[in-house]
Design a protein around this nucleic acid. Structure first.
Lengths: 110, 110
DNA sequence: TCAATACATGCACCTATGCTCATATGTCAA
DNA sequence: TTGACATATGAGCATAGGTGCATGTATTGA
């Protein structure tokens, strides 16, 4: 018989998945996948309010998925480490398998 | 400059992550990781209402993460395919890296 | 046929979450 | 210093999501 996962572990895992459980955050992560971007550029290229981008990046940062590099009046966000990159790339591949409708979307790794 | 992920792709990816963005569903997936389980046993071992288990398994099924095998008055749920298994195991490993507090939880693969 | 068991599901309630607006903080250039 | 630009953040609103209750359906056994 299977073991029962404890509350703490399941909550932590769920929190990680929650971080990527929103289309806006998915697009943000995807946008900085190849390299860091500042808040302003992200809001322009994704057509989002600056405040929305800040709020969501803060959440991703709290969850440990992205980091911030401040330079002057700019804040550059980048993926926290290679694990995040791998997890995201893995999920994209998984999605390509399960998505019935032909997916043209492709991820440029590195 | 990075490509912008289209709405459809980001929504589909977010939907996949959403499926695992809840502690209860994480525990359910973990519980059937090693092999199929029926609704009743799951509700007993996880201490959940039968209705809660049914509701959440339905969601997981709609998202394509689990399958159902009916036998008499029982419904056995199992992970849909090896991709789901890999994604879950991958995420667990990722969590082990990021979780500061020592994690004793371990996943028994196969 | 009747009762018990196993699942599924609509509804209602409550909480969580994402977005916008307004505003605060901080930096740079003139 | 002043104004423009870049970012952060709290409040409020609207909606999504998780759970329990009640009930419906199906299967099994007496």
């Amino acid at each position: 018989m299977p073991t029962v996962m404890n509350t703490e572990s399941s909550e932590h895992l769920a929190a990680t998945f929650s971080a990527l459980a929103d289309p806006t955050r998915i697009r943000l992560v995807h946008a900085i996948f190849a390299g860091e971007q500042c808040v302003h550029d992200l809001s322009v290229m994704l057509g989002l309010e600056q405040s929305t981008v800040s709020h969501q990046l803060r959440l991703l940062r709290d969850r440990g998925l992205v980091r911030r590099r401040k330079e002057g009046r700019h804040a550059y966000y980048l993926l926290d480490d290679s694990h995040v990159k791998d997890l995201f790339a893995f999920a994209v591949e998984h999605a390509r398998h399960t998505h019935k409708h032909g997916k043209k979307e492709r991820l440029r790794v590195r």
